[in-house]
């Protein structure tokens, strides 16, 4: 089965006053239809950048330097602007970080949804558009009358659901949800995640969930991808990732999770995340890696595939072989 989403050598830089920051460094990723991937990593590691690059929504001073993002056989990076506009929401949808302010305060929810359909299917009848919007609202457990409401009349969880309803409006093949629950209370977080889960199963869409909360993530995704300084360091199934993480950074992340044996005390990872302007030579993690070797300081580790379709970029597993 060919993956519905194939990312190859995706590279993004931000041209800042202090120089060029490589925010995404030759990222590769495959995702099958119906698969759910969790994308984790420290703040500033490049998760949103990756999502925005896939939507081709990187704004100046950022730039997609190279690579391809293929969704359902179409390379988005090679589309012209108008084709890309049409691909947004219909092929690949992004549910933004900060859904609290993502709805226009002066337009009714319905009008904002209709706008989205109209942009892609201009000659659909008005009644059909309304019906499609209302069905979308219902499928994220909202009442049909939300169609008539304004954003300020909705709670945080409801606004998040509206954003999801917009995201699934045109049944895209890939949905990216950027920290969809970070501003919500724990109970609402679960409910929203369950909604995403159910909708995703019904539509068979591939989903990328971006987030910090590994615990919440573990319950809803199939695979976890760990990002560090703009590179994917490990991609494994949830089971593998939590039982025997391979990459030392992934190990540190898992160890830092509160659990019963460390009495819920959060253990940080020693050292600071590197500045993207001065990414360390070799493996970007080497200044903080307890198992760093000489080769780590000079040579960037390639991503290699290991047993169980795991992808890991670390010299530990190649040096011995």
């Amino acid at each position: 089965m060919t993956p519905i989403l194939q990312i190859r050598d995706l590279q993004v830089s931000y041209y800042t006053d202090l120089g060029r920051a490589t925010a995404l460094n030759r990222v590769n990723l495959d995702l099958n239809a119906g698969e759910k991937l969790g994308l984790v990593g420290e703040s500033g590691s490049g998760k949103s950048t990756m999502a925005l690059a896939m939507m081709r929504m990187i704004k100046a001073p950022g730039r997609i330097e190279s690579g391809s993002v293929t969704v359902g056989g179409v390379d988005l990076i090679s589309l012209n602007d108008e084709e890309m506009r049409l691909a947004r929401l219909s092929r690949i949808a992004y549910i933004p970080q900060g859904a609290m302010n993502s709805l226009n305060p002066v337009m009714r929810i319905g009008a904002q949804m209709v706008d989205a359909i109209k942009a892609h299917i201009p000659n659909m009848s008005k009644d059909d558009m309304t019906e499609q919007c209302m069905q979308s609202l219902e499928s994220v457990d909202l009442k049909r009358n939300v169609f008539q409401m304004y954003a300020h009349e909705l709670s945080g969880g409801m606004k998040q659901r509206v954003c999801i309803a917009i995201g699934i409006l045109l049944k895209p093949q890939v949905i990216i949800a950027d920290e969809p629950t970070s501003a919500l209370d724990v109970v609402t977080q679960r409910q929203v995640m369950e909604t995403i889960d159910r909708v995703q199963k019904e539509m068979g869409t591939a989903v990328i969930l971006i987030g910090h909360d590994m615990g919440l993530m573990a319950q809803f995704v199939d695979k976890v991808a760990v990002m560090y300084a703009g590179r994917l360091t490990e991609v494994s199934t949830v089971r593998d990732m939590f039982s025997k993480p391979m990459h030392p950074y992934a190990q540190a992340l898992i160890k830092s999770l509160p659990n019963l044996s460390n009495k819920g005390v959060f253990q940080g990872i020693a050292g600071l995340a590197p500045s993207l302007l001065r990414i360390p030579n070799g493996c970007a993690f080497h200044p903080r890696c307890p198992q760093a070797m000489d080769v780590c300081k000079t040579t960037v580790p390639d991503v290699k595939e290991y047993e169980g379709n795991r992808l890991v970029a670390c010299h530990l597993y190649t040096e011995g072989a």
Binding site: M55, M57, R85, L86, A87, R88, L89, S90, A93, Y94, P96, G98, A99, M100, N101, S102, L103, N104, P105, V106, M107, A111, Q112, D115, A116, K118, A119, H120, C163, I166
Partner: peptide, 29 residues
């Protein structure tokens, strides 16, 4: 720079609709 203008672009709206419905209407208030 508001999130809703950004999201409008993510929805695949054309520039004129974003300008009129999401940007101008709010900026005019």
């Amino acid at each position: 720079g508001e999130d809703y203008v950004n999201f409008a672009e993510h929805k695949g709206l054309d520039g004129r609709t974003i300008f009129r419905n999401y940007y101008l209407r709010n900026a005019l208030l």
